[in-house]
Computed example of a mutant assay.
Amino acid sequence: MSSLLNKILLLTILVLAFSSINAEENTIKSYNQYNFYSGNFDFSDDKQKAILFGFQHQNEMLERETFLGNISPITGGFITENSAAYIYTGIEWNYDMGGKMIFTPSFAPGLYSEGDGKDLGHILEFKTEVQASYKISESSSFGLSYNHISNASLGDKNPGANSYMFNYLKNF
């Protein structure tokens, strides 16, 4: 089943990428960025690792320039092949590294349901993430990200989960 889901995700990414490359660039600033991602949930735990699929929205109308850089709100979620799910909202910092590279750390508290997957010890979990992206056009980027999810010892146990993802980011 995960093979079929991977093929569907890859096809979706390719269609979106080629449609954005061939389309005329819009001169009006886009205010919504969507991040479609897939990867390996808890890759460091051989017994619990699973394929994940996720979606994230960034509203650039609410972005702010601060002494830390450009900060904007994010909201998203993912589901694993074992029916574990996580929904979150938080903030991200976007650092233009010159040229076409962007570095994006983020922090987002959220709600976790283990499904048939890993028990992380609490419903409230915190996600910290770093992402490096490469712009392929004014409205599309590909990226690689790594995150850690932990309950900060709110529960009786706090095993945490480390994940990596491949990202397709699209501005609309």
Rank of each mutant, 00 (worst) to 15 (best):
S150M: 06
K47M: 00
I74V: 15
E114S: 14
I28K: 14
T66M: 04
H57N: 08
N94E: 10
I28A: 14
P109D: 03
H122P: 02
T104R: 15
N40F: 02
D45H: 02
Y86N: 03
M61Y: 03
S44T: 07
I21D: 07
G117Y: 14
E63N: 10
L16I: 13
T75Q: 11
S44G: 04
K29T: 13
S72G: 12
S3T: 05
P159L: 13
G99F: 09
Q56A: 06
G99A: 06
L120N: 04
H57Y: 15
M1S: 14
A85C: 07
S145L: 06
A84V: 00
I71M: 09
I13V: 12
K127H: 08
A152V: 07
M61N: 10
S113W: 10
A161T: 04
S106D: 02
D116L: 09
S113L: 06
L5E: 05
F172M: 10
A152I: 01
P109I: 05
K7M: 06
S141V: 04
G98F: 03
N171A: 08
M97T: 11
M97C: 11
K49G: 09
Q33H: 09
L16H: 08
K170N: 15
Q58N: 09
G39I: 15
F67I: 02
N35C: 00
G160W: 03
Y146V: 10
W93H: 12
P105Q: 01
T80Q: 11
G115F: 00
W93Q: 11
N59Q: 06
M165C: 15
N167P: 08
S133E: 04
S140R: 03
L9C: 01
L16F: 12
Y95S: 10
A17T: 15
Q48W: 12
S20W: 04
S139C: 07
N162I: 00
S38G: 11
Y86T: 06
F36C: 01
H122M: 14
G98L: 00
G160S: 09
L10Q: 12
S2A: 08
A50R: 09
I123G: 06
N22P: 01
Q131G: 08
F126A: 05
F78W: 09
